[in-house]
């Protein structure tokens, strides 16, 4: 009898809690952070992945199904990044609010112009996305566009707090635009610099800062780096002024470290997203730390 009451209590507490705040399911930490900026304590945010997980390779775990079941809004990247797990979560959740086409379904990638949309897609090319490169959060200008759209979505879902959300959006965008100017000034030295990357996750950052991506250590996206391909790459890069090799916190560092040693260039771990390094606690510090680490490697 006691356990029945316990379950009943859990159910009741679940319902009443949901009414006070918007339950947000963020697929990646960058979107959890953006919702935090725009909604503050009006949102109860759950982040499905961490900076140390590869967002391509997540399983539809029981815990995630339970969270989507209770969500009022899901905020994900889209563009095929979560294709292996998000559709399954949505189907299993039986939650009508967050299905595609509903107000509770928000894909950040759909709000902006994406780069590298392929003419043709074939699996022999590796894990390429027909919708283009999904790592859009590494361009702060695109974040600003996404923030506008996301804020409108919050208003749509919770119109009573319209003024609150609009004020937060204005405050965030003002701070954000100031920060963009600061970052661009700091990063002037990076313009035109040649960099090798572990996985093709940085095109938006590089496009913004004018960095040249000269090599990708994975021969094809999503296929682990092979020794023979690395040797070829080293040979090919012999005459290229590569300044550094970078990889994300969630990726294996072995290939990057090998190439760094062989070519005698700095190897830089970038946070890639919020919580990807100790001092990266929000979107602002994500770009602070990213630029700081790139500059430090350039000086080395």
């Amino acid at each position: 009898m006691k356990w029945i009451m316990f379950i009943a209590l859990l159910l009741v507490s679940g319902y009443s809690y949901a009414q006070q705040q918007i339950n947000v399911f963020a697929c990646e930490p960058e979107w959890a952070s953006l919702v935090q900026e725009l909604a503050g304590d009006k949102a109860n945010i759950y982040t499905a992945t961490t900076a140390f997980q590869d967002p391509h390779h997540i399983e539809a775990r029981p815990s995630l199904i339970a969270k989507v079941r209770r969500a009022d809004l899901i905020v994900c990247t889209g563009s095929g990044l979560e294709v292996g797990w998000l559709p399954l979560l949505l189907r299993q959740s039986a939650n009508p609010k967050v299905q595609p086409g509903q107000a509770g379904y928000f894909l950040a990638g759909d709000q902006v112009v994406r780069l590298e949309i392929p003419e043709k897609v074939d699996r022999s090319m590796g894990d390429v996305h027909a919708e283009g490169n999904p790592h859009v959060h590494l361009d702060p200008n695109r974040i600003a566009v996404i923030a506008e759209a996301l804020s409108k979505r919050l208003v749509q879902l919770d119109p009573i707090n319209k003024i609150f959300y609009e004020q937060r959006r204005k405050d965030f965008l003002a701070k954000w635009k100031t920060a963009i100017v600061k970052w661009q000034q700091q990063a002037r030295l990076l313009e035109g610099v040649s960099i090798a990357v572990n996985h093709n996750s940085w095109v938006y950052l590089f496009e913004w800062l004018g960095i040249q991506q000269v090599a990708v250590l994975e021969s094809r996206p999503g296929i682990p780096v092979s020794a023979s391909y690395l040797a070829q790459l080293k040979h090919r890069l012999a005459d290229v002024p590569v300044k550094m090799v970078i990889y994300a916190a969630y990726q294996n560092d072995r290939a990057a470290i090998w190439l760094g040693k062989e070519m005698n260039i700095p190897v830089v771990q970038l946070p890639y997203t919020v919580d990807g390094a100790d001092n990266v606690v929000d979107l602002f510090s994500l770009f602070d730390v990213t630029i700081e680490r790139l500059l430090r490697a350039l000086e080395a």
Partner: peptide
């Protein structure tokens, strides 16, 4: 027919 309970943990 499946029913997913609205609990914090997964229960179906």
């Amino acid at each position: 027919v499946r029913w997913l309970a609205p609990t914090e943990f997964y229960l179906e």
